[in-house]
Design a protein around this nucleic acid. Structure first.
Length: 429
DNA sequence: TCTGGGGTCCTAGGACCC
DNA sequence: TCTGGGGTCCTAGGACCC
């Protein structure tokens, strides 16, 4: 068994970098991207970071700066970012056969058994980040290590430096780990960090020095793995199978609180329909649905409750799912409550083809196979129309026309690469 | 003033079974 | 007084990630 080599590639300030792509005038200017509803900052260009704008800062706090033209502000434009992300992810297979797309802006790469040595690996790292920048315009960084956890650490270092870092060497690794605060380590969040500090673990190096079995008893199996991974012992494997997600979640915070049933029902119906559309496009069906409501987390009277319901037969049929969602909503709804957010989750998703083949045995919904067939064809037509005529052309009346719950998105950039009529235009002089 | 959205996995506890 | 010991399955909640 040869030593493993993992890489983590991460796009720098991804959303902000995307927004700069087709706006050369913003090349050296501070750019920030806002969350849904233009609520808070979710991405910042290096220039914006330098101005002291924090991640998660409320938009109203920097509105002045934006209006004076000191910073450029964008609402998030996920279909655009998703498209750029795809281009980058596809490129990675030029260099490695095994890729795990970890998030919209990150991927793990496996360099094991590619015949690389300490001489050849750095030039390859360099080639990857330079080529991606040249071909897509997005700056990326690439960290290497013998485990995925160490590749993550390496990436943190790479991002702060010249874009590459290699932690394969044990001595260098230990030196780096002693400079990484415990809360920075992948898998140590805001709850675990204080616990670890109490146990005297302040840096990643401290954590690596702990007896893994003791850690298992103290904090659990994941933390045991973490200790081993930091020591170069590989526990977590690349998951490069096509992702088969187990749930689909659609939720939104409302710009203003919502206290009437009708508005809430329209939102919940819309989320249910969106989730079903996603499931159908993945070829999956849900065994159940969960509806959740909550008021503002930051108010004293914080209320957060949800309810689940199974289906007689796993389904992605919008009308059925919407009906169930609205029944659950009726149960949950409390008159006079200022709701801030609603969530719909499709649970325990299964492959539609497999479910169908077993369907005859387990059907409990009293429908004939022909009726199921009909439902499916109807959904196919709806999806077809929405795909070709534009998203949301066809919808269910329970979703409502007014959709008061929808908030602001005032700074959305054009769909440069995803909408024909928003393509950038090259002007000839 | 405002304070995102979408996932995964583990753990603990109860029900139930042999 | 004593009133087994496991195992599985499910769910809710907590923790983490980006």
């Amino acid at each position: 068994m040869s030593l493993r080599i993992y890489g983590l590639l991460d796009c720098n300030n991804f959303f902000a970098s995307c927004e700069k792509l087709f706006r050369p005038d913003l090349a050296d200017k501070p750019v920030v991207v806002l969350s849904n509803n233009d609520g808070v900052v979710v991405a910042r260009s290096p220039e914006a970071k330098q101005l002291g704008i924090a991640m998660g800062e409320a938009y109203f706090k920097i509105k002045r700066l934006a209006e004076s033209g000191k910073i450029a502000v964008f609402s998030s434009n996920f279909s655009f970012y998703g498209d750029i992300s795809n281009r980058i992810m596809q490129m990675l297979y030029r260099w490695v056969p095994l890729v795990e797309i970890y998030s919209i802006d990150e991927a793990f790469l496996e360099f094991t058994n590619l015949g690389l040595d300490s001489e050849t690996i750095t030039p390859l790292q360099q080639e990857i980040i330079v080529t991606i920048k040249k071909w897509t315009g997005i700056p990326v960084s690439l960290g290497l290590g013998p485990t995925m956890t160490l590749a993550k650490v390496a990436n943190d270092i790479a991002k702060k430096g010249n874009g590459i870092c290699n932690l394969m060497d044990k001595e260098y690794r230990n030196e780096i780990l002693s400079r990484i605060e415990i809360g920075q380590v992948w898998g140590v969040g805001r709850r675990l960090a204080p616990k670890m500090v109490k146990l005297g673990i302040r840096t990643a190096r401290d954590l690596a020095a702990i007896d893994p079995l003791w850690m298992r008893r103290e904090l659990g199996i994941l933390q045991e793995q973490l200790v081993r991974e930091l020591n170069g012992e590989h526990c977590i494997d690349l998951n490069n199978a096509p992702s088969s997600r187990k749930s689909i979640q659609v939720s939104r915070s409302f710009h203003d609180t919502v206290d009437d049933f009708q508005t809430l029902a329209e939102a919940v119906a819309t989320f249910a329909a969106q989730a079903c559309e996603q499931a159908r496009s993945d070829g999956t069906v849900a065994s159940g649905i969960y509806v959740h409501l909550n008021t503002s987390r930051y108010k004293e009277s914080y209320l957060s409750e949800g309810k689940a319901q199974g289906f007689d037969r796993a389904t992605a049929h919008s009308p059925t799912v919407i009906r169930t969602a609205l029944e659950l909503l009726k149960d949950l709804f409390r008159q006079g409550t200022p709701y801030k957010k609603a969530t719909v989750i499709l649970l325990n998703l299964k492959d539609n083809a497999v479910t169908k083949s077993q369907g005859i045995l387990f059907d409990m919904d009293n429908k004939t196979p022909e009726e199921h067939e009909q439902e499916e064809r109807l959904m196919e037509s709806v999806d077809y129309i929405n795909r070709t005529m534009g998203k949301g052309k066809l919808f269910f009346c329970s979703q409502g026309m007014k959709q008061y719950w929808r908030g602001a998105s005032e700074h959305r950039s054009p769909g440069y690469t995803t909408h024909w009529n928003e393509l950038p235009v090259v002007k000839a002089k």
